[in-house]
């Protein structure tokens, strides 16, 4: 049994003139200890997928269809109370902006102890001790004093370490990290990602890493899902997808990276932008930006077709492999 199974997830946002479907049937599974990355540009629906796993989608958004199973239990059918016992306990989340995630008027200690006592029966002293242990685990110097400090007294990198410490407090089976290092400098990003990788490996924690940075995904995960306009368009082992992408969008995305061009030469660019939810073209959502698109691409939505370890949703690719 997989640790997490997402089957045909659909998320819509209710608008005045009808529902807009942001996630159009996303399926994937995650084993214990496995680390996967979800990549895509803004608006692709990466964060919506992450939020819907814990049913954190707020109005007017709602999960319209599909099933999310965690250790065999269906998360989408759980009551709010049952979900609370899983959130921050068996599944923890790390959000993008460390400045926004911590409560600015509570000390680090209060926030850590609160999270511990919500899920375990501990005395204040025990909870404090445990918090200090965790802060040390994420390499925060003078952890005892940090516990009584407020978030504004810590730097961005320190805050993100504290948030990772909070995520680890209750020994979760799964951490969902939504752009955990986007707000940080490269050197701090490298430190934080090294730390997360180490902690996940040592504690057998599974990780869903959501990011737009292909380099970070490549260094951290074994498997990757590429999303475009609410659908998975390509999946496979991270190394293979990056070195040998099959979908024209993935190809374009990788070629657009400055690392991939000869210095001083023009970058390979994908023309146009991702369509907004209310203007998604018929057929393959990528077709207006795709150099290979033909009539079939403009009329028929390609399915995600699996071949060995990899799957691709592209008519042209399927035709070429036939």
């Amino acid at each position: 049994m997989s640790l997490l199974e997402v089957k045909d997830l659909r998320v819509s946002f209710g608008m005045r003139n009808g529902d807009l479907e942001a996630i159009k049937g996303v399926s994937f599974s995650l084993e214990k200890g496995e680390r996967i990355g979800i990549v895509g540009e803004s608006g692709a629906g990466k964060s919506v997928v992450a939020f819907s796993i814990l049913n954190l989608i707020s109005k007017p958004g709602f999960i319209s269809d599909g099933e999310i199973k965690f250790k065999g239990q269906s998360l989408s059918k759980m009551t709010e109370k049952q979900l609370s016992s899983i959130r921050g306990n068996q599944i923890a989340m790390v959000f993008q902006d460390p400045m926004m995630t911590l409560n600015p008027v509570l000390t680090i200690g209060v926030q850590m102890i609160e999270s511990l006592k919500a899920h375990r029966k501990l005395s204040d002293a025990e909870a404090r001790k445990e918090s200090i242990r965790r802060l040390k685990q994420v390499q925060i110097p003078s952890a005892e004093q940090r516990l009584d400090q407020y978030p504004h007294e810590l730097s961005g990198g320190m805050k993100q370490r504290v948030i990772i410490a909070i995520a680890l407090l209750n020994d979760p089976d799964l951490i969902i990290a939504d752009e955990p290092t986007t707000a940080l400098d490269v050197t701090i990003q490298a430190e934080i990602m090294d730390l997360m990788l180490e902690l996940c490996e040592n504690n057998g924690v599974s990780l869903i890493l959501i990011t737009h940075d292909l380099g970070v995904v490549s260094e951290t995960t074994k498997k990757v899902l590429v999303m475009y306009s609410g659908k998975i368009i390509e999946t496979g082992p991270t190394r293979q997808v990056i070195e040998n992408p099959n979908h024209p969008y993935t190809k374009g995305l990788i070629k657009a990276l400055p690392q991939m061009a000869d210095n001083g030469q023009r970058l390979n660019q994908i023309p146009g932008t991702m369509p907004t939810l209310n203007k998604i073209p018929p057929g393959c959502a990528f077709n207006p930006r795709c150099e290979f698109a033909d009539d079939k691409c403009r009329s028929e939505m390609p399915e995600l077709i699996a071949a060995e370890f990899r799957s691709v949703a592209c008519h042209k690719f399927q035709e070429s492999t036939k």
């Binding site: 540009e41 803004s42 737009h212 292909l214 374009g252 995305l253 657009a256 990276l257 400055p258 023009r266 970058l267 390979n268 660019q269 994908i270 023309p271 932008t273 991702m274």
Partner: peptide, 10 residues
């Protein structure tokens, strides 16, 4: 975004 970065840099 990455693909837009490339356009603007070009």
């Amino acid at each position: 975004d990455v693909s837009i970065q490339a356009q603007v840099l070009n």
